[in-house]
Amino acid sequence: MQRAIERKGIPTVSITVARDVTQHCQPPRALFVPFMMGHHFGVPFHRELQQRIILAALDHLVMARRSGEIETIPVTWAQARREGKAIEQAIGQRD
C-alpha cells in the first residue's frame, strides 16, 4: 500500500509497532514505536504524546534520505501508560 502511493510520487511515512513486519515489507519510510498493537499513537487522552508521534513521523518524511529507513523515537510503553493514567485521573476518566 505505502509503496504504491510512493510510486505515484507522493512521499509517505508509516507508524509501525512491528519492526520485523516492516523490515519484511520494506516501505520507503517508517517510524517504529514500541507500543501495544492497536495503540500506535499511544494511550487514550494523551494528546501531547499522540501529537508527538505524528510530528516525529512527519519529520522523518521530510528528513529521510534513504529508502527503507526505520526511524525510532525515545518513548516506552511503560512511560506512556504511566503518563496516560495520570492524565485520566486529572480529567476524571479514572478513579
Binding site: 510510486r7 512491528a18 520485523d20 519484511h24 515489507c25 520507503p28 498493537m37
Partner: peptide, 29 residues
C-alpha cells in the same frame, strides 16, 4: 524492542502465504 517479538513469523504461521516480503526498495518521492 517491539512488544510482540516475531510477529511476522507468528502471523505467517497462522495465515500461511498472507505476509508480504519485498527485497527491493521503492525510490523516495
Amino acid at each position: 524492542q517491539q512488544m510482540r517479538p516475531g510477529l511476522w513469523e507468528t502471523i505467517n504461521e497462522r495465515y500461511p502465504g498472507s505476509m508480504i516480503t519485498k527485497d527491493d526498495l521503492v525510490p523516495l518521492a
